[in-house]
């Protein structure tokens, strides 16, 4: 169920899990649009030659996933701030899940704070962060 305003939200609400497209084709599309084209993002072998576990989903793409998740949950949300910490690589072609929970809420301003994590299939946190968004009253 999507959220229309701040009154629809309670502290501790869990956002619907979002499984983003981490395929090589989609990452290639992203890095082209972002002008971030580099073999470490689009070529597993080249990435391994750099000592990486495989081609990487760029950090800025993971951050984009987090923002998209918030918009899917609350289409009218105005994102004010997204802060992400990259703890471990998100590898291209490996499924990951975006999770979010509301950890602060101010009904007067309509602002919510959301904890966000990117986890892999093993449930390990690869990226975490927080976002602040304003919802209509």
């Amino acid at each position: 169920m999507s959220v229309n305003g701040i009154t629809d939200v309670e502290f501790g609400d869990t956002l619907p899990v979002f499984d983003p497209d981490t395929s090589l084709a989609n990452v290639a599309r992203f890095v082209e649009a972002a002008h971030w084209n580099a073999p470490r993002f689009t070529d597993h072998e080249a990435a391994r030659a750099e000592g990486l576990p495989g081609a990487l989903v760029p950090g800025i793409m993971s951050q984009g996933f987090l923002a998209a998740m918030i918009h899917r949950w609350a289409p009218k949300a105005e994102i004010l701030y997204v802060d992400t910490v990259f703890r471990a690589p998100v590898v291209v072609d490996q499924p990951c899940h975006i999770n979010g929970v509301v950890t602060d809420l101010d009904e007067a301003t309509g602002e919510v704070e959301i904890d966000l994590t990117v986890t892999n299939e093993a449930g390990e946190t690869r990226v975490f962060g927080t976002a602040r968004a304003r919802l209509p009253n």
């Binding site: 979002f18 599309r29 992203f30 649009a33 972002a34 984009g64 996933f65 998209a68 994102i79």
Partner: peptide
Amino acid sequence: ETAAYAVSCGEVAACFTDPSDPDFQAPPT
């Protein structure tokens, strides 16, 4: 390119994905 960036991140709202939308803008990140 801005729309492609948004689509590949999973945005679905027209204001991010459709350049003809009157409120078209870059995704926040």
